[in-house]
């Protein structure tokens, strides 16, 4: 086995600052947040994606990922999370390649819509002055977000996800050290 690279340089404050970035991202959908605190997560894990999982996942949260053996070993060691093969069993999913279809992930129930998956997707780029028009809770008028690296049918899948409210999946998009979130309440209009 190859040498494992370290997790957060400071596990307590690193997780705190990453959590604030994710909380801010989830509260203001489409706004980019920059994350720091990890030197070099194993490829293809980006910094923000790796940090988000270390911040949120642990022995209580099954994780699904397609990021490969090195990333799995790193996650298992630093987060102590169980890794599952079935996307629908996961609390957190990290997709670096093809994303699993949103409809196949845990949606929660009408009574307990919070028992739903959070999907983290490592995309090519994120930019916030162009692209989709986002509206909904957390957004004063509209936010713009351009994402390179999502499948073409993502907006259609997202519309279906949103229509199931309060059930549904929440998405965190990451690109290197940057992240932005799409809670299930956000409406996406393609520009």
């Amino acid at each position: 086995m190859t040498e494992l690279t370290p997790g957060f340089a400071d596990p307590v404050l690193g997780a705190q600052s990453c959590f604030r970035a994710i909380l801010e991202a989830m509260s203001r959908p489409g706004r980019l947040q920059r994350v720091a605190g990890i030197e070099q997560p194993p490829a293809p894990l980006g910094l923000a994606a790796a940090a988000a999982l270390l911040t949120l996942a642990d022995a209580d949260t099954p994780v699904w990922t397609d990021a490969g053996a090195a990333a799995e070993a790193w996650l298992r060691f630093h987060a102590g999370c169980p890794l599952v093969a079935e996307p629908r069993e996961a609390s957190f999913l990290l997709a670096t390649g093809r994303i699993p279809s949103l409809a196949t992930l845990a949606q929660g129930s009408e009574e307990e819509p919070h028992r739903s998956a959070t999907l983290i997707v490592e995309v090519k780029t994120l930019a916030e002055t162009v692209g989709w028009k986002l509206t909904g809770p957390g957004i004063e008028t509209e936010h713009r977000l351009q994402v390179a690296g999502l499948p073409a049918d993502f907006p259609r899948q997202w519309a279906a996800n949103r229509a199931g409210f309060p059930r549904g999946v929440d998405v965190v998009l990451t690109a290197g050290p940057w992240l932005a979130a799409l809670p299930r309440t956000t409406r996406i209009e393609e520009a």
């Binding site: 911040t55 949120l56 819509p113 809770p137 409210f165 309060p166 929440d170 809670p183 309440t185």
Partner: peptide, 24 residues
């Protein structure tokens, strides 16, 4: 510990907070 709570507890609460924000 910083903030009194242990890190496992904070993670559990942080997960709940994110779902709470996602379902206003």
């Amino acid at each position: 510990n910083f903030g009194y709570l242990d890190e496992n507890t904070k993670r559990m609460i942080r997960r709940a907070l994110l779902k709470a924000v996602a379902i206003p």
